Computed example of a mutant assay.
Amino acid sequence: MKTLVAYFSWSGNTEKIAKQIVAKTGADMFRIERKVPYNEDYNTCAYREAKEEIEKKIRPEIKTPLPDVEKYDSLILAFPIWWYTSPLPVWRFLESYPDWKGKKIYLFANSYTDDHNYMTTSLKDAKASARNADVVAGLFNKEIEGLDEWLTQNNFR
């Protein structure tokens, strides 16, 4: 099984998780980046830029080139929770491909809370953004402590 780990990280926390997954699986890695970077100030980023995107459903442009997803069987998609779901560049990434048929996408979400409703919302949004993909919940927040076991159970190791 050929796997891509795609991740979005503003502060570096999610990047650490993505690198752990790649180190343990040998998967390829792709960083989802907004073409115009978010402000480095947390309050400006969170309460102005990200909030406006979620309120207006703005899909910001992301850097290219995008990876060729045709060569992958599965995608592990890691991201922080922003405004109760995944950041909008993640939606844009998923919507950039016309068809995910035959691909399985596992979500890895981290948040400052342990409210599983955020994973539920992220799952719903990912399913709406990734046409024809089989999108499933991976690990949420502190469940990352069970990463090794999860990777083994899902045949990534």
Rank of each mutant, 00 (worst) to 15 (best):
M1F: 12
K2G: 08
L4K: 00
V5L: 08
A6W: 01
A6N: 02
Y7F: 15
F8I: 04
F8S: 04
F8A: 01
S9H: 09
W10Q: 07
W10S: 03
N13R: 07
I17L: 13
I17A: 10
K19Y: 04
Q20E: 15
I21C: 06
I21V: 12
K24S: 04
G26V: 09
G26T: 10
G26A: 12
G26R: 14
D28N: 14
M29W: 08
M29K: 13
F30E: 00
F30L: 01
I32T: 00
I32W: 01
E33G: 00
E33Y: 00
K35V: 06
V36F: 04
P37C: 08
E40P: 06
E40H: 12
E40L: 13
E40V: 10
D41F: 07
T44D: 00
C45F: 10
A46M: 14
A46V: 11
A46K: 11
A46G: 06
Y47T: 10
R48I: 05
A50M: 11
I54P: 04
E55K: 00
K56W: 00
K57H: 09
K57S: 06
I58R: 01
I58H: 03
I62M: 03
K63N: 07
K63W: 03
K63I: 02
T64G: 10
T64K: 12
P65E: 00
P67S: 02
P67Y: 05
P67D: 02
P67C: 07
P67L: 02
D68C: 06
V69A: 04
E70G: 12
K71H: 08
Y72D: 06
L75H: 04
L75T: 01
A78M: 08
F79I: 06
W82N: 05
S86N: 08
P89H: 05
P89Y: 05
W91H: 12
R92Q: 13
R92D: 02
F93H: 03
F93A: 00
P98I: 09
P98V: 09
P98F: 06
D99L: 03
W100V: 02
Y106F: 14
L107W: 03
L107A: 01
F108A: 03
F108W: 07
A109N: 10
N110D: 03
S111C: 09
Y112F: 13
Y112A: 15
T113C: 01
T113P: 06
D114A: 09
D114Q: 15
D115P: 10
D115K: 14
D115G: 09
H116Q: 13
H116S: 14
H116K: 15
Y118N: 11
T120S: 13
S122A: 15
S122Q: 02
L123M: 02
K124W: 07
A126T: 04
K127E: 15
S129I: 02
S129C: 09
A130P: 11
A130L: 07
R131W: 00
N132D: 04
N132H: 06
A133M: 00
A133G: 01
D134Q: 05
D134K: 03
V136A: 10
A137K: 12
A137G: 11
G138E: 10
G138F: 10
L139V: 08
F140G: 11
N141F: 08
K142Q: 15
E145L: 13
E145P: 09
G146L: 13
G146K: 15
L151K: 12
L151Y: 13
T152N: 15
Q153S: 12
N155M: 10
R157V: 15
R157Q: 15
R157C: 14
R157G: 13
R157D: 15
